[in-house]
Design a protein around this nucleic acid. Structure first.
Lengths: 112, 112
DNA sequence: TACGATTATCGTATTTTTGCGATGAATAAA
DNA sequence: TTTATTCATCGCAAAAATACGATAATCGTA
């Protein structure tokens, strides 16, 4: 990637791609699943479930946090990570809006 | 990534991540958009729309093809790329099924 | 047949991602 | 206060993704 031209894409395309990128690793997908099903959000358990070292899990958590899909804060020695449902829903809506747009256009133009 | 342990994730998580990965680049997202709105599928036009060299666009098209989201075949000197609507819908369904599962679990367990 | 146009592929450079051990910071417990 | 636990961050290594020029292959056309 000699020159990255991210600004030359429409914001919708960029936004969809960004969301997809955070969902593009099975570990991060798995983390979301674990956070959704545990009613307690203690994160040490995540490390036990995933086939990854603690440092690596921490990195994935950081990415999920940066993307806004989860929140996280230290509580004593343990950390509490939670899904940010509002943001998750927002990203899902944008994603599906894009997908619906594709399908609508495809039906209008009888392409292939 | 000294050791990749992709097989240690559930198939759903892996599947979601794979789909997300092909959607994780704005160029590929843009290509899908173009293919959906053009009723002709001639691909040379894609190169003109995107801020990328022809070789790079060809690579992205190949990835989209490998993921099953589009089909492509040479017709004379030009190539005809089309969205594989059936597969696209299938991937979208899997993705949304995962997302719905998350939300359902989240509502059941009053996490955070 | 020679030429131009279109696309795929190859080789390569650069960047980004992924992963982990080691370390440090903060708290809880002995 | 010392010790153990939990987690984040740093530094580095390896792999994957991205991008492009050059080239080859294919077809239509002059």
């Amino acid at each position: 990637m000699t020159t990255t031209k991210k600004d030359e894409y429409a914001t919708q395309e960029q936004s969809v791609a960004d969301f997809a990128k955070t969902m593009s690793h099975p570990a991060r997908v798995a983390i979301l699943k674990v956070l959704a099903q545990k009613n307690t959000c203690i994160c040490g358990e995540i490390v036990e479930v995933l086939p990854l070292a603690q440092a690596t899990v921490s990195q994935h958590l950081k990415e999920l946090k940066n993307s806004g899909l989860i929140t996280g804060e230290l509580e004593g020695t343990t950390s509490c990570y939670c899904i940010n449902w509002k943001n998750l829903q927002k990203e899902l809506d944008k994603f599906n809006k894009f997908a619906d747009g594709l399908i609508a256009k495809g039906q209008k133009n009888g392409c292939c």
